[in-house]
Design a protein around this nucleic acid. Sequence first.
DNA 1: TTGTATGCGTTATCAA
DNA 2: TTGATAACGCATACAA
Lengths: 331, 331
Amino acid sequence: MRVTIKDIAKKVGVTPATVSMVINDSPKISIKTKELVLQAIKEMNYHPNYIGRSLVKGKTNNIAVVASFFASLFALESVRGIENNLRRTGYNLILYSTRGVEENERDVLRRVFYERRADGFIIISLKLDDELVSEFEREGIPVVFIEEIVKGAPTVKFNNIKGAFMATEHLIKNKRKKIAIIKGSKVLNAEERFKGYKDALEHYGIAYDEKRVIDVADYTFEEGAPLLKTLMKKSGGVDGIFCSAGDITAIGVMDAAKKMGIKIPQDLSIIGYDDVYLSNLTNPALTTVRQPIAQMGMQAFDQLTDMIEGRAPMESKIISFEPELIVRDSV
Amino acid sequence: MRVTIKDIAKKVGVTPATVSMVINDSPKISIKTKELVLQAIKEMNYHPNYIGRSLVKGKTNNIAVVASFFASLFALESVRGIENNLRRTGYNLILYSTRGVEENERDVLRRVFYERRADGFIIISLKLDDELVSEFEREGIPVVFIEEIVKGAPTVKFNNIKGAFMATEHLIKNKRKKIAIIKGSKVLNAEERFKGYKDALEHYGIAYDEKRVIDVADYTFEEGAPLLKTLMKKSGGVDGIFCSAGDITAIGVMDAAKKMGIKIPQDLSIIGYDDVYLSNLTNPALTTVRQPIAQMGMQAFDQLTDMIEGRAPMESKIISFEPELIVRDSV
DNA sequence: TTGTATGCGTTATCAA
DNA sequence: TTGATAACGCATACAA
């Protein structure tokens, strides 16, 4: 059997309550007993059981992070940022992935939440209905969203409109006229980037043409080739592509273009999004948009702990981070 | 206040014990009360509090995964594998990263472990002292190691010796005579790969020369250039490099070589390890060794749950996975 | 088939 | 300054 507070109490000849007070550094404990207790704790290698503590305190010291997958650059970098600020605190990280199954999202969240597995939630790129958020609110469980906006909870996000605007603008300034966009769907940031693209076209007096818009499905490298072919066919020719769906797909497109004998950037300019590790290493090196993801994760964590510890209210609010254009050789 | 088992009991007019039995699907409950209870549970949106449950059961249903960093291909893919098998079970994932600080490792582990935060541990590429493992063993907490061998616990790992042998052999068969190795250090798999390299040289009657051995520090792309220069200088020329430290560094070396006017693979053959995403995209495409990381993660999870649930003992044992040589254009 | 009683490990309240 | 007691939410052995 493992050693509990009772064992310590027995050994020292005090009650569990006294030991508990020592552990929690109560000021009204004599130095003498405190020392005795601490020594016994060391000798017997005692560690407080967090389950017992949680039960009475109603607090787990766990932070739950929810995403559809964690095996993505974005989720991973977010976690890295969260972790960075978390390590100075007493909190622990629990990860829940919904694995892309939409119906899972509600269920997973409800379960984790009602089972009181965490003191607060950080939800990465998942769109929850307001109703569920109200439930959270009613029960007093803080939630922070990353990259999605839900009524009643704070959001930490990037200025995607600006990022897309800068990217498109860069293409335009490099004399590109027939600019296509490869975009994601369903998530807010995809829509925002789409808006930034259209804004830039309009701002520079270039007609928007929906034949130059194409949706991505998997955000993979492999999707690049078919995407490029479809785009060429249906648009009747493009001279610039803003792959707002991310660098991986952009690199796939670039690869396919090279294989088709298209010269980059002479015949076709390409710009990505994310600045993943390899964007710097492709030939030509990929021009892209970089977002301070880890920093944003840190902010999400700070915001959440502020809420958990009562320093900030749970309310609609947007904390925005600015993207940066990384100019390389593909435009 | 949130709804507990008592509220349900009161509403239905039974005792908490009865409700508990319904929740746990006890066979000796009349269909009638069962229905009533279940309905009340639904109506009142009741979810069992896992803290309460854990306290009495002595089980958290949490699996802790520990690594120095999660922002690496290896850790990430491992987590992906673990996640994949975990989702069918009732377990949750807790992540702990020691952030490369060695003294953290023991502390983090001890704390998490003694506080009873998880039912079992998967430890990725960390070398623990046997003593700590004995402690775990004594307390009956199952641990599975990935890529490190520690007495008293099972290990899931790759056949690094073979992978390195195949890589070196491939260089030799392509007429390379002066073959250098860029290697990691401190971790077991680095030593194993080093052994595989030496084995292959010996097997093919090529003299081992320690001037052709160089250690990597950060496993980064940027390290490639200085590494190559140092190697050239101290070895007096090489015609093949086995970068057992991984593809990222290998690509850095390749990049540096190209900039120095060295032709690959004509003047210099390079082979990496890992088969990261971009290895297929470099010019020339990188020949490398691929390991089924996610699969190994799945196995680690299964092994751990077998131990937690009493189907397997905690004992020294090695579950090995075979690497695969991916031949592309750099050799 | 259900109720009663007890305990899991800890903390908090009140007395002493 | 410390002890006794109850409570957190749930599960289980035993009694009814």
